[in-house]
Amino acid sequence: MKKRLTLAALAIVAAFTAPAAMAEGSAADGIAQYRAMLAEGNPSELWELAGEDIWKEKRGPKQASLEQCDLGKGPGVVKGASAALPRYFKDTGRVQDLESRLMSCMETLQGIAPENFVKGKWGKGEMEKMEQIVAYVVGQSRDMKVNVDMSAPQMKKMYALGKEAFFYRAGPMDFACATCHGQDDKRIRLQDLPNLTKHEGAAAGWGSWPAYRVSNGQFWTMQHRLNDCYRQQRFPEPIYGSDVTIALSVYMAKTANGGTVMTPGIKR
């Protein structure tokens, strides 16, 4: 092997064979093909690896790990936990999604203040660690079924709020989530937009976030995803872990119930 290969060039050739095949199918087929090529080397795994270590690491002013954190399946149980979130937690008296629950755990067990996240920047400091933990936790529900328990009255209330928020039109463009995600076969540029009001669409959307975004090399949690939806609607971005974001998650998760968890996903 004296002759060295310039692998960069090879990689570029490989990356451009997908669009060539696109001519035969629709643009969506091309994107699906592109995703399949990327899925093998989903960099989310790197976040998962880091997250598992952070989960077990003694951190914060109280020097504790998250191994006693109850994500709804008992203290320390991670397997299948995120497939059943959001849910109503008796100890906090709130419906919580994964991230708000982790925020509670970090506050009570480790003494890490919620301000680190509420006022934090995506991908920086504690927020980066949150993203890594999220990747680890959602990876432990991969290939399971979305199974959100709606029996608590608090969940029903959150669902109703989420539905209202989903259809709530406002902002300078008079947009609602439903403007883009309320009908079949909508798209933004070449991206198909899932119809989140129906089971198939909600399963595709809810089931594949959090995800790694190839275009910017970032790992996005569901909270980050929702905030960006609001940004695109020209709304003020919601507060991290606030009720409206959890309500929207409940609305999507309930509609997606029974769908397959594909997290952490990979996106263009």
């Binding site: 092997m1 060295r4 290969l5 310039t6 960069a8 990689a11 990327l38 960099p43 790197l46 090399g217």
Partner: peptide
């Protein structure tokens, strides 16, 4: 079995 030169055109988190 393989030796390669990488450069700045290779993506972040390469596979």
């Amino acid at each position: 079995v393989l030796q390669a030169e990488f450069g700045p055109s290779v993506s972040k988190n390469p596979f």
